[in-house]
Design a binder for these strands. Structure first.
Lengths: 109, 109
DNA sequence: TTTTCGTGTCGTATGTTTACGACATATAGA
DNA sequence: TCTATATGTCGTAAACATACGACACGAAAA
C-alpha cells in the first residue's frame, strides 16, 4: 500500500507537522527540557535523567537529531548533546505563524 | 513487550505531547486551516478540500476529535465540524509555556 | 595488556498510524 | 417505496514508533 501521501501537502505544513512529530512523545519533551536546564551540554548521561532504557533514550535522541532540533557533537570519548537554537527558533516561529493563521471562532451549528 | 511508558512522565508533558501528536500530520494541519478559513462550520465535505480518500480524512478527523481540538456536531443529515476554541487556546498556551521554559543557548562543546 | 566505561548499532517484539475499499445506515427527495 | 447523498463502521495491508536486550568498538584507566 502507499501509506505516505505527506508529500502532496504544502511544504510549510509538512515542516510544521515534522516538528510537531518531534515533540509528540513526552520523553522527547523531557529531553529538551533537560538539555535547556543543564545549560552545560551534558553527554548521553541524559539516560540517568530519563526513566527509560539507554537504547530507547538514544532512539529518542535520534528522532530529535533527525528533526535537527538538537545537535550531538563528539567531544573525545563523550558525546555532547545540545539544542540547536537556530532550528528551535525556526520551529517557534513556524508554530506562531500557524497559530495566527488558525484563529478559531466558536460558530458551530 | 511494554511499548507504552508515557504515563511515567509529568502530566503537563504528556498533554503537550498529545497535542503535538494531533498536529503531527500535514493533513491534520490542513484540516485545521480549512476549518479556520471557511468560518462557517462546513461538513465532512472537507474530503473535497483534502487530497485523500474519504475514509482517511474521517480517520484524521477522528484523531483531531480525540485530542478535542475539534468538535463534530450532528445537524440533521450533515455533520458540522469546527475548531474547539477552548481546547485550541489551551494548546496555544501550553506550547507558549513550553517554549518559554526551553530557552536554548548555543553553548555546545 | 586487560578491563571498564561511554557510546553506538542490530535485531526484534509489540503496538500505533496511515491509507483505503467494502459494507451499513439514515435522511431527504423523486 | 426506491434512490441518491451524507455519513459512519469494519477489516486489512503496509509502514512507522516504542522499548529494549545483546553485541561491537574505541579510548582511558588499572
Amino acid at each position: 500500500m502507499i501509506s505516505n501521501k505527506s508529500e502532496i501537502f504544502p511544504a510549510e505544513q509538512q515542516l510544521a507537522a515534522a516538528y510537531a512529530k518531534a515533540l509528540s512523545h513526552p520523553a522527547r519533551i523531557a529531553i529538551l527540557r533537560y538539555l535547556a536546564e543543564t545549560k552545560v551540554c551534558i553527554t548521553g548521561d541524559i539516560t540517568d535523567a530519563i526513566p527509560l532504557g539507554r537504547t530507547t533514550v538514544l532512539q529518542h535522541l535520534q528522532v530529535l537529531k533527525d528533526s535537527e532540533l538538537i545537535r550531538g557533537d563528539i567531544d573525545g570519548k563523550r558525546v555532547c548533546y545540545c539544542i540547536n537554537s537556530e532550528r528551535y527558533n525556526e520551529m517557534k516561529q513556524l508554530f506562531d505563524e500557524l497559530f495566527e493563521n488558525i484563529n478559531p471562532i466558536n460558530n458551530c451549528c
